[in-house]
Simulated assay, not measured.
Amino acid sequence: MLGPILVGDESTLEKNQYGSITGEIYFQFENFCFPELRWNDFIVVILCWWNKAVGTLEVSSVGTTVEFHFMDGPFYVRGVKSGEEKVTLNFLRRKIEGFEILASRDIEIDSLKTAIGKVSRKIVRELHRKNWSTNDTEQLESLVRKRR
């Protein structure tokens, strides 16, 4: 394993007047952070998407592609199932014409699933502590319960 795969900082959670919750979430491998160190985005919505995407990778055939989107910015991660238990993650930036690959990493699907699950559980605990409940937080909590 190449160090932390996903960083989600529960101490950075904020809820706006419309009920949207943001917080720091980014991938980190050694000195490489994607999209960048301390990236702040719509963490609850993103974790819902990512839990579903990694679930698709688990049950799909080799060659299946899923995307792990961020809500803000031109950044996303494309995951290609490269073996029964492996995925290649391509860290991409959208451009006017196509995209640019900023980095690629091969990891085990279970490692990705574990990382997303760990951050999701940590965020759900903090949401409970803050007593924040929205449709998005309920969906994330449901996804976390299904993954146990």
Rank of each mutant, 00 (worst) to 15 (best):
M1N: 10
M1D: 11
L2A: 12
G3K: 07
G3N: 09
L6Y: 00
G8T: 02
D9R: 13
E10W: 02
N16P: 00
Q17N: 11
Y18F: 08
G19F: 04
T22F: 12
T22N: 08
G23K: 04
G23R: 05
E24T: 10
Y26R: 04
Q28N: 11
F29G: 02
E30R: 08
N31M: 05
F32C: 01
F32T: 02
F34V: 06
F34W: 02
P35C: 03
E36W: 06
L37N: 06
W39E: 03
W39K: 06
N40W: 04
N40M: 07
D41R: 04
D41A: 05
F42P: 00
V44H: 05
I46D: 01
L47G: 03
C48V: 14
W49R: 13
K52L: 08
V54L: 07
V54E: 08
G55M: 06
L57E: 13
E58N: 10
V59M: 06
S60N: 08
S61E: 12
S61G: 10
V62E: 07
V62S: 02
G63R: 05
V66N: 06
E67N: 13
F70N: 08
M71I: 15
D72V: 12
P74Q: 06
P74W: 04
P74R: 05
R78S: 15
G79Q: 07
K81R: 15
K81P: 05
S82D: 03
G83Y: 04
E84Y: 14
E85N: 12
L92F: 03
R93I: 11
R94H: 07
G98S: 06
F99E: 14
F99W: 07
E100F: 01
I101E: 15
S104D: 03
S104I: 01
R105M: 10
D106G: 03
I107E: 10
E108D: 09
I109H: 01
K113M: 06
T114I: 08
T114M: 11
G117D: 13
K118D: 15
V119C: 04
S120G: 03
S120R: 00
R121V: 10
K122F: 00
K122Q: 11
V124I: 09
R125M: 07
E126K: 15
L127Y: 02
R129G: 03
R129L: 13
K130V: 05
T134Q: 02
N135G: 13
D136P: 03
D136M: 14
T137Y: 03
T137S: 15
T137A: 08
E138A: 12
Q139D: 12
L140C: 12
S142W: 09
S142K: 15
V144E: 01
V144P: 00
R145C: 04
K146D: 10
